[in-house]
Design a binder for these strands. Structure first.
Lengths: 128, 128
DNA sequence: ATAGCCGGTATCCGGGAGGTAACCACCACC
DNA sequence: GGTGGTGGTTACCTCCCGGATACCGGCTAT
């Protein structure tokens, strides 16, 4: 259940500006997907989401927590503080239909980008 | 393919504030679903989406059009102007995985609302 | 004691989303 | 020529999302 996280989800381009589908706020969808592979610490999430400042990441996590999709657990074991975020059963259930959306986006992102480019070019030609 | 639209999608409560899942802007998801039953005129869309002002509805439609999910066609036949919005094949394809998300939301909206209420109550108790 | 890590806050700020209200161009019809 | 319907547009305003930057409190290890 605890699969490794990618080093960086952003390969120069921000995925959340490509896909029109969102969960909660701007980064919610990607946070959920980062948690799909198992519980993660705050600093673990910051690695693949390195373009997200801690304030914004906290806000995303709090919002997902509010909706009961993510659970936060804090403990003070030996070695210091440890805060973990994990999907709740509700959140895990939501990820199933969302994965199909993800598959669709991956399959059609080129068409989306082409459509945007064509639309913007046509507007630029007509207008200013 | 041209199924009737409900008279009003808003039963006192705005669905887009309940579901954490969005497509494009605030109303994009509902616009797509209104078009699922067949092409619609602008004024037809305004009936089920009566809480959406024309400016905002136009913005939603333009954004969906930009992404190639919706197509706009205008014609001046007898009887006046007629503008129709319809799903493109791309948009129709996206609606399939989205319908499963919709099913999930319908099935779990109560849990979502309970979670929010509990979370807000807990915060109110702790904080102010 | 002090340095460092972890998990965040505090503060400021700009831009854009989204709502309100009013107005408008075009055409048909009478 | 006026009236009405359709399909918007324009101006204006407010709120809040999201980013930048800096800072902080608790804990541990040395």
């Amino acid at each position: 259940m605890r699969e490794p996280l990618p080093a960086d989800l952003f390969d120069e381009v921000c995925p959340s500006t490509l896909s029109p589908v969102r969960v909660g706020d701007k980064w919610g969808f990607m946070v959920l997907r980062c948690l799909a592979g198992g519980p993660r610490r705050f600093s673990e999430l910051r690695v693949p989401l390195r373009r997200v400042t801690p304030k914004v990441l906290t806000a995303s996590l709090r919002a997902l927590e509010r909706d009961g999709l993510v659970a936060r657990s804090e403990e003070h074991g030996a070695g210091g503080r440890r805060v973990e975020y994990r999907l709740t059963p509700l959140g895990r259930g939501l990820l199933e239909p969302l994965e199909e959306v993800c598959d669709w986006v991956r399959a059609h992102v080129d068409e989306l980008l082409d459509a945007r480019e064509a639309h913007d070019a046509a507007r630029a030609g007509r207008g200013a």
